[in-house]
Nucleic acid binder design. Structure first.
Lengths: 343, 343
DNA sequence: ATGAAAGCGCTAACAT
DNA sequence: ATGTTAGCGCTTTCAT
């Protein structure tokens, strides 16, 4: 069967014409198939070393670059994975992006970033790594049905119906609170943002564990809520108002995450409150910034790199074998005790 | 011409079979062409409103999602752009990623991130936005030839042979130094990392302007160099050693970028040096963190969002019309004077 | 206004 | 071991 080209130059649109596998085949005097086999390093077909070397050389000389769109079209794999987060703008997301990108690159995958799940449909990415956003994902699924895409959730706050690499912030929180109690704190206030209707049954282990711990130790649970917005700014404003309106400060502030802690610290200092003398502080996440404040802040450190290494492994396995049973892993965080909670 | 399928199920590989435009066409009782015209909202072909609505409805009902790989194959455009930076791991990169991603998404583009230029060949991305890395890019071009790809450079430190949206850190530095002089500083030390063989002719406007300014005002130029590594950590170590070995401290520290300033501030405080009483400080970049130190640090603020909005515009234009003459724009930074340089 | 069909570059089944 | 060819889903030209 011969295809007949009727018209003259039909395609004005495909501007860039790059070197294709056909070109390599022509120059190397072999068929496109052979080129494909060589370039894909297929072990099931045996190509004589001479032919292989020759094809490889020609490809190199011609500067051949496989067309990823064409490959994606036929294989159904784009070699692109997504990093999803509600807010990509945070130090935590930046750190995870860095490590995840590094892992993915090792296996020839590129990483795209976004805050909109519906962009990441099949044929755009082969899989998704989601940070710390179970509620928005559950909401998405309710509205759009399941994302038929390899999906791994990571962080202290994960979706537990899919593959996840969690951080055991329940234990982390327990340790942090025990530490605070051990240095003499009794009134430990939970400093948080978001909407938590019921702390004892909250999805977030930090909330749950705090509530349980305080109850168990017969200590007063106190909550200070930061309104939604820029966490540092809102935290600073909130704590300043709180300080002004309080007759007596609590012994310690346990912050849901580091950025809140940083805003709070700044606000406290601006009000002349000393940390840890007047109030001790512990945050969660372990972003670098916490170590570089005048009083370095204690925090529950997430193992970012480990998280990404394992997250990538899970995602890769899931992409290769979608039918796999659910894979889960819970990594221990590390309580980094610094000056802010030593007294 | 009829294509004859000889074998049985030939393709075991293409696993996910999604709804294609052909399916929509079948259900809507029209041709694939019509579907394509409707879905692409082509103004040059007039489709009756009834037909259009009908096709649209079917597409929606079927949950049709165009296959991006197929589209990319035929159009040569992937609708993917890259954000390139030597270090994606910084607050500056995170901020730019955030704003750039937002702009690109408005036009249906996704953003991929990487530190390896050679991954971003045609057919992977339609264009590249590069942050602040002229030397590594020039080196790449020398080794690999020109990247035949729409390319825009942004930041205070840009490639000036291609489209760029720069930040005028020459003026910014000038203002910062004038400010420091105006509050009484004479010995102003330049705190930097990297390798600058010749400050007066350096590519980086911060270095150049500092050297020129000090010469012009007959002030002593002094340089303290931070070794390569984690900027905050290295800066902290370096300044502590510097302080211990100095008989008399300079009046001010002008830092090449904010992370160095943060490390330096931390180190100074740890040595019991007061800011700004003993030494004034100014940084460059304008990352949020600078505002949340106990003594908020003055800094030359880059207009991140504006940078990305204009950078995206340039990139988009370049992608649409590669032959365009070079486009350049220089945005003014803003000197944010905070407590660290007021005395 | 709508349809038929070519072809984008690649992979893989099948034939030699 | 290598070649031939169908087909991935789409856009676009040309014909009706």
């Amino acid at each position: 069967v011969k295809r007949v080209t009727k018209g003259v130059t039909r395609f004005t649109m495909a501007v860039r014409r790059t070197i294709s596998a056909t070109d390599v085949a022509k120059h190397a005097q072999v068929s496109r198939t052979t080129v494909s086999y060589v370039l894909n390093e297929r072990s099931d077909v045996s190509i004589p070393t001479a032919t292989r070397e020759h094809v490889l050389k020609i490809a190199r000389d011609l500067g051949y670059q496989p067309n990823r769109a064409a490959r994606a079209l036929v294989t159904g794999r784009t070699h692109m994975v997504a990093l999803y987060a509600e807010r990509v703008h945070t130090p935590v997301a930046a750190s995870i992006l860095y490590h995840f990108q590094k892992e993915a690159a090792k296996h020839g995958f590129d990483v795209t970033v976004g805050t909109n799940l519906s962009r990441f449909v099949p044929q755009v990415v082969d899989g998704i790594l989601a940070i710390d956003s179970p509620t928005s994902i559950q909401k998405y699924i309710e509205e759009n049905g399941p994302l038929n895409l390899p999906f791994v959730s990571i962080g202290p706050y994960f979706v537990d119906s899919v593959d996840y690499v969690g951080v055991d912030f329940a234990t982390g929180t327990q340790q942090a609170l025990e530490h605070l109690v051990s240095v003499g704190c009794r009134r430990i206030t939970f400093f948080y943002d978001g909407i938590i209707p019921d702390f004892e049954n909250a999805v977030d282990p930090r909330c749950r564990t705090y509530a349980a711990f305080m109850k168990e130790h017969n200590l007063p649970a106190e909550y200070v809520r930061v309104p939604y917005g820029s966490p540092r700014h809102e935290a600073r404003t909130t704590i300043r108002e709180y300080v002004r309106n309080s007759s007596q400060l609590p012994d310690a502030l346990f912050c849901r995450y580091d950025e809140l802690a940083i805003g709070a610290y700044c606000g406290l200092r601006a009000e002349g409150i000393r940390v840890p003398e007047d109030i001790a502080m512990v945050g969660c996440d372990g972003i670098e910034e916490m170590e570089f404040l005048e009083t370095p802040l204690s925090t529950i450190v997430q193992p970012f790199e480990h998280l990404c290494v394992e997250g990538w492994k899970f995602l890769k396995q899931r992409m290769e074998e979608p039918g796999l049973p659910q894979q889960t892993l819970l990594l221990p965080p590390h309580l980094e005790v610094r000056a802010s909670s030593l007294r």
